[in-house]
Design a protein around this nucleic acid. Sequence first.
DNA 1: AAATTACATGAATCCGCTTTCAATAAATTG
DNA 2: CAATTTATTGAAAGCGGATTCATGTAATTT
Lengths: 340, 340
Amino acid sequence: MKGRVSAYDVAKLAKVSQSTVSRVLNNYPHVRKETRQRVHDAINTLGFSPDEIARSLASKKTNTIGLIVEDISNSFYAETAHIILREAQKYDYEVIIIDAETDENSFERAISTLNGKRVDGIIVASTRMDNQKVKEFYDKGFPIIFYNRRIYGIEESHYVEVDNKLGAKMAVNHLVENKHRKIAFISGPTIYSTFYQRFEGYKEAVQDNGLEYDESLIYKGEVSYDQVFQFALNLMRDEDRPTAFFASTDQMALAIMDAAARSGRHIPFDVSVIGFDDIEIASNPYISLSTISQRKREMAVLTLQKLLSLINSDDSNDEPNKITLEPELIIRKTTGVNNQ
Amino acid sequence: MKGRVSAYDVAKLAKVSQSTVSRVLNNYPHVRKETRQRVHDAINTLGFSPDEIARSLASKKTNTIGLIVEDISNSFYAETAHIILREAQKYDYEVIIIDAETDENSFERAISTLNGKRVDGIIVASTRMDNQKVKEFYDKGFPIIFYNRRIYGIEESHYVEVDNKLGAKMAVNHLVENKHRKIAFISGPTIYSTFYQRFEGYKEAVQDNGLEYDESLIYKGEVSYDQVFQFALNLMRDEDRPTAFFASTDQMALAIMDAAARSGRHIPFDVSVIGFDDIEIASNPYISLSTISQRKREMAVLTLQKLLSLINSDDSNDEPNKITLEPELIIRKTTGVNNQ
DNA sequence: AAATTACATGAATCCGCTTTCAATAAATTG
DNA sequence: CAATTTATTGAAAGCGGATTCATGTAATTT
C-alpha cells in the first residue's frame, strides 16, 4: 500500500497543524467552525482515514474486544457471536474471535494473544473453571466477563449466565412428569461450570423425585458427536434401556436423536429426548427438539453491554456483575409420555 | 492496567539496549548467544509480552486479517469461520470478523473499518458483485480474496469458489432423473454471484432437459426463513404444485421442508427437496437433506493460504488466483422418484 | 480602556516498538 | 602484524496520531 495519506497531509492541505486535524478527528471543542470545515474538506478530497493502529498506540484504546469461544461452528456459539458482533458494531467496537481448543494451553495462548493485541476487554465463552491466567488478569483489573460460564476461585468475577442447575431440574422434572423413571444424562466435561451445574441439577432432580441414580446412564466425556452417538447407541440397544435422555446441549441431543434413528427407536414413542440451549435448528419441525432455552440474545447483549461499561468506567471498583437469568422449558415433540 | 512492563524495562534488567531486546524478540541474528539468553531471562522474570500495537505501527504489519461474512449465525458461514480461524491460528494470524448487513453501506463500512485497523488482508465471504470500494482496494494492490464469491468488473480478482452453475445443473439433473418435470427454484438475490450462477445453472438445466420455464415457480428474494417458508407454503397448497424444490442454500431448504410439513406434504413422497451447501445439519438423519456439497473445508483452507501468500509475496504481480472447485452431489433422503 | 477570561491553534513530546546508522570489538586474511 | 571483514551493540530517528503546554486572539468584565 503505497502512499497512504496521513493526518499530516490533511493538515498541510487545510493549512492547519496536525494537532488541529487530530482535534477535529476526535471531535474536540476549541476548533473554529470554519477551520473544522476546512479540515473535513481536506479529509474528503484526500480520502483520508486515520490509522487506527497509531491512534491506539497513542490513546491506549483499541476499540477492539476479544471473544473466546470453543468452537464457532457450533450453533450455540455462532448464534452468540452473531449477536455480539452486531451489538459491538453499534458502539464502534471490533471483535477478534478466537476459536480456542479446549485444552488449557490453547486457552492461555488465547488470553496472551488478546493481551498482546491490547484489546480493551474480553468476553470468555469458553474456559475451564480454574484457569490461572484468567485470575491474574482479573487481579490486574482487566475488563473480562464470562458468558454462560463462571470461574471459581475468583469472587469478584463478572458473569452473565442462565441458571443452569435450575434448567437441568426443569428438564428432568418435565420428563418425570411424563412418567419417565430411567433417565440418561449426557454431559460434557464437568470441569466446565455449565456442565458442572447441569450435572448438579440432574442429580438433585433425580434425588428429589426419588429416582435411582445410575452411573451407567451417565456420559460426561468430550462434546463429540461421534462419542455421544456411540454411547447413546449402546444404551438404545440395551434390554433395559432408559426411556428418556437429557442432553446438556442441543448439539449432543442431535447425536442422540441420530442414535435413536439408527437403532430403530421412535421419538417420542420409544424414547424421549430433551436438550439444552435451544439452538436455531431445534425449532425446525423435523427436529422439533424439546429443550431448555438459554435466552441467548439477552445473555449476549447483556454481556457486551456490561463489558463496555466495565471498559468505560473510571473506577474499577464497582461491584462485580453477577447476572443469572432464568431458563425456560420449551416443550416440542421429542418428549412424550412414557408408556412402557 | 497499571505498570505494564516494556521492552525498555527488559533492556535495563538485561543490561542491554532496547534495540537488542527488539533483536531477540524478532529472532534476528547478530546477538551473542549469551546476551540473547540474558534478555530471555529478563523477559521471563518480568513477564514481558510485547505490545503488538506498537509493533504493528513500527513494522507496518498487524498479523491480523479481516473476514467479512453476512451472518455468522448461518451454519455455512459459521463452519467456514471455524476453519479459517483455526487455520489462521497456525500461522499466528488473528482475525477480525465483521458480520455485515447485506446492504451496500454496511459492506463499505466493513471495508473501511478493516482498512482503518490496518489488517494485512481481507477475505470477503459476502458482497454484491459490483461493489465499488472493493475495486479501489484491488487497484491499490491490497490483498483481498473472495470466498465463494466473485466480483465482476475486476479482471484481476482473486477468488476461490465452487462451480455454482455446475452444481445447480447437477441438482436439477438429479431431480429430472427422478422424473420431476415441475421444479421450483428458490434463490437469494441474484446480485450475489453465487445466487446468480446457481440461477443460471437452473435455467440452463431446465432448458437442456426440455422443461418448461415457469416464473411462478421462482423465488429470488431475500434469504429470509419466513419469506421462503411462506412462498413454499403457497406453492405446496397449489392444485398444480411443483413436485420438487431446488433451494440455493440448505438454510432455505430447511424452510421449505418446514413448509412441506405444515402443509401435510411428505418428503420425499409428495415432494422432493434438494439444497446447496451441505451444512452440518443436512446430514442429520432427521433432516437427511439431499444437497450439493460446497467442499467448504478445502475452499476455506485454500482461501486462507492464498491470502497469506498474497500478503507475503514481495511482488504483487503474480497472476490472480482463480480457483474453481467441483461441487459434489450428495443424495440423501429428501429426494425421490416422482410418482404423480 | 485596561484587565480577565475563554477560545483557537501550533510546537513539541510521547506511545512502545522497529530499523537504520555508526561505533566498537572480534575474527580473518595476506 | 597490519589491513580487512564480520559480528555485536547502542544511539537516534521514525511509525502516525494524541496530548500537554505555550502563545496569540477574541469576547467579557469592571
